[in-house]
Design a protein around this nucleic acid. Structure first.
Lengths: 216, 216
DNA sequence: GTCTATAATTAGATAGAC
DNA sequence: GTCTATCTAATTATAGAC
């Protein structure tokens, strides 16, 4: 019995439960991979965190590698969603103010989802099959940023230096403070995820990059 | 038979071989821990990389945890050595030029030893006993930097924003480009460790931070 | 869909030979 | 000092019950 439909039917309660379990496993996997790395995070610990049997993960994700890939896809899908901005909301703003808004938005994204940087950094320090696979996602987000960045260099917003270095500088300053949150807490005794610290960090970046000139 | 001596005697050939083996194991451990993380790097792979039996590692380093700690101590000892500068070499320089020199020196350190950032980032994303142990080393290097940084904020070299954010911004921009070298190569097709890329990166940071003012 | 039970592999540790 | 051999524990994977 095949149904032809424009919008998806309301799911059966069993199917709903399935998707909920799948989502819980994915969420637990994100946290575990972020904290312990690919080998350090065990299927069994992820299952235990969700409260299901480890064999169930095979049913939803085939194997550990596939689970990791599903987690990475989820990260970049969410990044695209959350970083997209309605054009109307920026009408009348100068290009510099748009760049500043972008920095604020990205800083907040990094604070809300530190597991993104944690997982991707651990992927990007080793030149293996997983990094090769993830390259398409990283590449896509870099290419989008690169186009804008080159335009902004021409407009004098960024200095005319290596574009590749600039991209990594921008990403690094937004991510690192939150990625290393456990260290920041231990060394400096502050919580990077507090509203105050998040705003102070965005302010620091924007002031240093765009509103500051060193005195000799 | 006890010898009292001012300077160490020339070591026996057997003892020399022992220390050479120990150093090789430590070097291999640094590379493996950096690339694969604590759990991902196996004692057996490290031993295989050196060309010795895995049981020998226990003789030199007791267990995996101790080997990791020895590797981290080595990293910070070398950091202190290589970042120390003779006061004479900076005589007559303005404070701003000293800061620029510091950035250049640190960028070169990060390029020469990307395993430092790789190992410490993986330690700092998880709040466990190893990070607690490593805190003393991180703290020491942050405290040195923090004192100078506050002075330089007063002098107008850095903008008057969160000092903690500034520290992480500075460290992040110097480290990340080299830490993520495998990614940089795959995405942008350049080698971050080439002399040209290293210098361009240091230039990018210094220009952006100290020699640039955005146009509105 | 989810769990039980178990096979197959791999890792860290260590006793003892050389 | 270094290696061989072995033990134990943990992990991924999977067949099959419910």
């Amino acid at each position: 019995m095949v149904k032809i439909q424009e919008a998806p039917e309301p799911l059966g309660v069993r199917e709903q439960q399935k998707q909920a379990t799948r989502a819980s496993i994915l969420q637990a996997a994100l946290e575990m991979f972020a904290e312990k790395g690919f080998e350090g995070a065990s299927i069994r610990d992820i299952a235990a965190k969700v409260g299901v049997n480890h064999a169930l993960i095979k049913y939803h994700f085939e194997d550990k590698e596939s689970l990791w890939k599903a987690a990475v896809e989820f990260l970049f899908d969410r990044l695209n969603e959350e970083m997209t901005v309605a054009p109307e909301s920026e009408e009348g703003l100068s290009e510099l103010d748009r760049v500043k808004n972008f920095v604020r938005r990205y800083v907040h994204y990094c604070a809300q989802h530190p597991e993104h940087a944690r997982i991707m950094v651990q992927a990007s320090v080793r030149d293996d099959e997983r990094l090769e696979w993830a390259t398409r996602f990283i590449k896509r987000s870099h290419m989008v940023g690169m186009t804008d960045l080159k335009k902004h260099v021409r407009e004098g917003i960024w200095p005319n230096v290596s574009h590749i270095s600039l991209i990594y500088i921008l990403v690094a300053v937004c991510q690192t403070f939150f990625m290393l949150a456990p260290e920041v807490k231990r060394i400096h005794g502050i919580d990077p995820f507090s509203k105050k610290a998040i705003d102070a960090h965005a302010d620091a970046i924007i002031t240093l990059f765009f509103d500051h000139k060193s005195e000799d």
